[in-house]
Amino acid sequence: DKDGKDGKQSFKRYASYKGELALPKEVEDLKIHVDRRNRTVLLPVYGYAVPFHINAIKNTSKSDEGDFTYLRINFQTPGQVGGKKEDMPFEDPDKTFIRSVTYRSADGARFDNIYRQITDLKKEVSKLEAEKRDKMD
């Protein structure tokens, strides 16, 4: 049932970058960066610039607590409730998945902006893929 016939979507492979040369220069400030052209969000994790393709991202939420703004990025993983998405395809559901990451910043305006950029990119890519699917049918 790997091919996901009969209406089930099959998993489509994607990749953010071929190698480190393609990483955007902005990652060096150790802040979250949205690389719209490559449909990728880069997260700072203990010195690394870690790319996550927009297809791996489910949604983003934001909250303010005290002096900080918190930004949570939720990823596509198996075993999630909510939304009738049981047929969400995965390449290998037996792996370990990063389900969410939460960051905080004292610069709320910047996190508002990052939140908007990720949400817009997600919408844009979902729309393009829906259009592509419609054309194929």
């Binding site: 150790l30 198996p78 370990t96 998945f97 969410s100 990451v101 939460t102 960051y103 910043s105 004292a106």
Partner: peptide
């Protein structure tokens, strides 16, 4: 400040 601060990470572990 050392950039954005990672606060929490959640994993799905089958």
């Amino acid at each position: 400040r050392a950039g954005d601060e990672l606060v929490e990470m959640r994993f799905y572990v089958p």
